[in-house]
Design a protein around this nucleic acid. Structure first.
Length: 848
RNA sequence: GCCGAUGUGGCGAAAUGGUAGACGCAACGGACUUAAAAUCCGUUGGGCCGUAAAAGGCCCGUGCCGGUUCGAGUCCGGCCAUCGGCACCA
């Protein structure tokens, strides 16, 4: 032990209480029907985004959210809820595998070590997780059910009539494989040569892999896809009933990117036509050319003899470009004329058909009608290639029509002239529909989810191939466990490492196993369900347990979900999608997984920079706990500032909070001659005086409300005010200090438990552990002042103060003549108004 | 470019339209101590007037400009800066 004396013995009492909690399993939440389950209590499910157990261990960012949920969990328990508060490990993923590639060690070994480290670090902070429910996505007993859920998805289709997933057996078409929610397709994928795998759109940032930052290129490959686009509409609409930050909802809506408009057919000749998607059918008369994506299948059919060489050359050039290049070199528009023409159905004019890489094959129909006067990109293109420009929208203001992309009045458009853009859209769409040349259409930016990876360390697909066709394994064959390998390295050719295990791949004489694995997101798409019933080996989650913990009168099952904004689109969208499929199939009771979502802000280094190894500004929780204890660490994490805001770490700040806890300690404990801590003689079985009563009840109120609203920093401030008020008093009433310890307990449970125990040894008025105590209520009456000070403002300036009884009458609360006349130069705009104002302020004071 | 968040002392931050800066850090002064640490008490936005010293008083101040209001950190309009997301999505 260090020679320096601790301000209070946290180094002894913290391990002591952690051992007691573990021994008595105080935070275990029994399921309905199990021993100790109390059906009279309402449930509350509080969840953290579970971590990837990296080799580096915990940093101070992790426990920020975990501390907040722990405070809420402890608070809810004291309020009489059955609280489900679990923790687990999202352990499939690249780092463990890359380490395996280097060392030859099986990733399961590294994972086990890292989990042990994370777990011991979390335990040191004193979190009240129900460790009996710990899960690990790489455990075969867990991923057996991940594979099982995949089978449900594979064996379902989205019925557009009912807008729900249904078993594939209800599909009446000829080719069920074409409608499954999990399907195989040759798609242009994000291929990352360095990582040797394909990546989802969401995993590619600025043309580079999100993990590692390696270049990513487009390349067509045969891949497993999940039909998330079928749920686009519901994923937008059903955000409505969730208590999520508006910003996160918006992020999801934008990612899904719904646009309404029309599909319009442009005739080329008697047997060919081009279909385009537009959100502005009202600008059809301004369409002076068409542009197809270079990869568009129609291109082969329409290119004229003399244009072939140019088209071929352009297509090859585009195909070679990586996403990064396509994005970066986009400053200048490029394109090639196909030599073909189409008829604009409105003007009946012949317009040229071009190809250009600013038109994407994957969105809409892969073709657009160029309306240069009212679209920036089309305008740039038309100017570069000297194509005609026709203005068809008149802005309402004094802007010029050319280049105007907003809504206005239709002009030069015989059928819809004079109509507003909104009306014009409706009318021209109806007109096209009548003539069979177009129809209303909705498009989404969201693409289907590329679900396969060419990696070792992930869930194998429960699929085999026979005669070139895929089929699912039966449930009884789960889990499909990956074979051990000598070499985990990706092949680089796109063939997954699992393909090397020849024996394993040969499923039967005729059938071979699928060798792709699932992406890391798979395990985290449903872990919150497994927590409800983690040891069930008959079902992915027991029906009763699911109904209880995921139930309630709101659409989302988890009451509170806390984690970082970095998962705003990926994890949260994928999990919602899986949950909806399971809901449609009748496996879960609510349509949404997470009711209330709160995002924690990032913690920066002391230098106000993002924490990183290279900057050397990383703070290790272990060091902080060694020096100041877990309670101080927890409280500082919460005291730093508003929970959702980004904020820098401060070593001095931790010291301040540690001092506060030491003051709490010394409020109850004093040192005797032998240097031993003993309960202070100042604590007496007596009634608090009026002022003490007031600060106590103000503290109960503030702490209670602030926990509910995630304003933990101001809750701690109020507790500091309480302690300051009781420092240096002659006598401390035991009831007041008991109540205070209950309030402190969620924030600093070790010290609160210890002091509570010390009080119990001397005073016999209350029994039992602090965690079993009910949360105190407060009495508004005790908070009101008898007398309030009111400031007199004249023309907005502070001019005088006056004291008056809180129950003063209207007459009595008039500013006194003295305060108004003491300076002649003050003018009073409205005397009566001032009286009203004073009344108003007084009412407010009274209320708080 | 579009969307969103944020902007308050030396620092982290508080403030249902009603005394801006609670609480904490740092700094300074005092008590205790042989001394230091720890602890406790006090001062602390800026400028000016006042006084022997006090007491006291005035003006300015929440990124910038304007507006609404008796009264604006808070509401409205316009700008600037920082951070985050999206980015040829027709």
């Amino acid at each position: 032990m260090s020679g320096r004396r601790k301000p209070y013995p946290f180094d002894q009492l913290e391990p002591k209480w952690q051992a007691i909690w573990e021994e008595r399993q105080l935070f275990h939440a029994p399921n309905p029907g199990e021993k100790g389950f109390d059906p009279a209590k309402p449930k509350f499910y509080i969840l953290d985004m579970f971590p990837y157990p990296s080799g580096a261990g915990l940093h101070v960012g992790h426990p920020e959210g975990y501390t907040a949920t722990d405070i809420v969990a402890r608070y809810r328990r004291m309020r009489g809820f059955n609280v489900l508060h679990p923790m687990g490990w999202d352990a499939f993923g690249l780092p463990a595998e890359q380490y395996a590639v280097k060392s030859g060690q099986h990733p399961a070994v590294t994972t086990r070590e890292n989990v042990a480290k994370f777990k011991s670090q979390l335990k040191r902070i004193g979190f009240s997780y129900d460790w009996q429910r710990e899960i690990n996505t790489t455990d075969p007993r867990y991923y057996k059910w991940t594979q099982w859920i995949f089978l449900q998805i594979y064996n379902s289709w989205f019925n557009p009539e009912t807008k729900r997933a249904e078993p594939i057996s209800t599909y009446r078409g000829t080719d069920p494989d074409s409608v499954r929610l999990a399907y195989v397709a040759d798609v242009p994928v994000n291929w990352c040569p360095e990582l040797g795998t394909v990546l989802a759109n969401e995993e590619v940032v600025d043309g580079k892999s999100e993990v590692g930052g390696f270049p990513v290129v487009r390349r067509p490959m045969r891949q497993w896809m999940l039909r998330i686009t079928a749920y686009a509409e519901r994923l937008i609409d059903e955000l409505e009933g969730l208590d999520w930050p508006e910003g996160i909802k918006l992020l999801q809506r934008n990612w899904i990117g719904k646009s309404e408009g029309a599909e319009i057919d442009f005739k080329i000749d008697n047997d060919k036509k081009v279909r385009v998607f537009t959100t502005r059918p009202d600008t059809l008369y301004g369409g002076t050319f068409l542009v197809l994506a270079p990869e568009h299948s129609l291109v082969d059919l329409i290119v004229t003899e003399e244009q072939w060489p140019a088209v071929r050359e352009y297509r090859e050039r585009t195909a070679r470009k990586s996403d990064l290049e396509r994005a970066e070199l986009s400053k200048e528009k490029t394109g090639v004329f196909t030599g073909a023409y189409a008829i604009n159905p409105a003007t009946e004019q012949k317009i040229p058909i071009w190809i250009a890489d600013y038109v994407l094959l994957g969105y809409g129909t892969g073709a657009i009608g160029g309306v240069p006067a009212h679209d920036e990109r089309d305008l740039e293109f038309a100017r570069k290639f000297d194509l005609p420009i026709v203005e068809v929208v008149q802005p309402l203001g004094d802007e010029q029509a050319l280049g105007f992309v907003g809504e206005g009045i239709a002009i030069n458009s015989p059928i819809i002239d004079g109509l507003t853009s909104v009306e014009a859209k409706k009318k021209i769409t109806a007109w096209l529909e009548e003539r069979g040349q177009g129809k209303r259409a909705v498009n989404y930016k969201l693409r289907d989810w590329l679900f396969s990876r060419q990696r070792y360390w992930g869930e194998p697909f429960p699929i085999v191939w026979q005669d070139g066709k895929h089929r699912s394994l039966s449930e009884t064959e789960l889990p499909v466990i990956p074979p051990p390998l000598e070499d985990y390295k990706p092949s680089g050719t796109g063939e997954p490492p699992l393909a090397r295990a020849k024996e394993w791949v040969g499923y039967s004489e005729k059938a071979v196993r699928e060798t792709n694995t699932m992406p890391q997101w798979a395990g985290s798409c449903w872990y919150y369900l497994r927590f409800c019933d983690p040891h069930n080996d008959k079902r992915f989650v027991g029906e009763e347990a699911e109904r209880y913990w995921m139930g309630g009168d709101k659409p989302g099952g988890v009451n509170l979900y806390v984690g970082g904004t970095e998962h705003a689109v990926l994890h949260l969208l994928y999990a919602r999608f899986w949950h909806k499929v399971l809901f449609d199939l009748g496996y879960v009771s609510k349509p949404e997984p997470f009711q209330r979502l709160v995002n924690q802000g990032i913690i920066l280094g002391e230098d106000n920079q993002k924490m990183s190894k290279s900057r050397g500004n990383i703070v290790n929780p272990d060091d902080v706990i060694d020096q100041h204890g877990a309670d101080a660490f927890r409280c500082y994490e919460m005291f730093m500032g508003p929970f959702e805001q980004m904020k820098p770490w401060s070593t001095r700040g931790v010291e301040g909070v540690a001092r506060f806890l030491a003051r709490v300690w010394r409020l109850l404990m004093s040192e005797n001659q032998a240097g031993k801590w003993e309960l202070s003689g100042k604590i007496k079985n007596a009634d608090p005086n009026k002022a003490q009563q007031k600060v106590l009840h103000a503290t109960i109120k503030k702490v209670t409300e602030d926990i509910e609203s995630f304003s933990f920093n101001t809750a701690i401030s109020q507790m500091m005010i309480f302690v300051n008020a009781f420092t240096n008093v002659e006598m401390i009433p035991v009831v007041a200090i008991r109540t205070f310890l209950i309030l402190l307990n969620p924030f600093a449970p070790h010290i609160a438990s210890e002091l509570w125990e010390k009080l119990n040894a001397k005073f016999s008025d209350v029994r039992g552990d602090i965690t079993k105590q009910p949360w105190p209520g407060y009495d508004e009456q005790l908070l009101t002042e008898d007398e309030v000070e009111i400031v007199i403002q004249i023309n907005g300036k502070l001019r005088d103060r006056m004291k008056m009884p809180i129950l003063a009458t209207h007459e009595e609360s008039r500013p006194s003549a003295k305060s108004l006349s003491s300076r002649e130069s003050w003018s009073i705009s409205s005397y009566e108004q001032d009286v009203e104002r004073i009344q108003g302020i007084r009412r407010k004071r009274q209320r708080c």
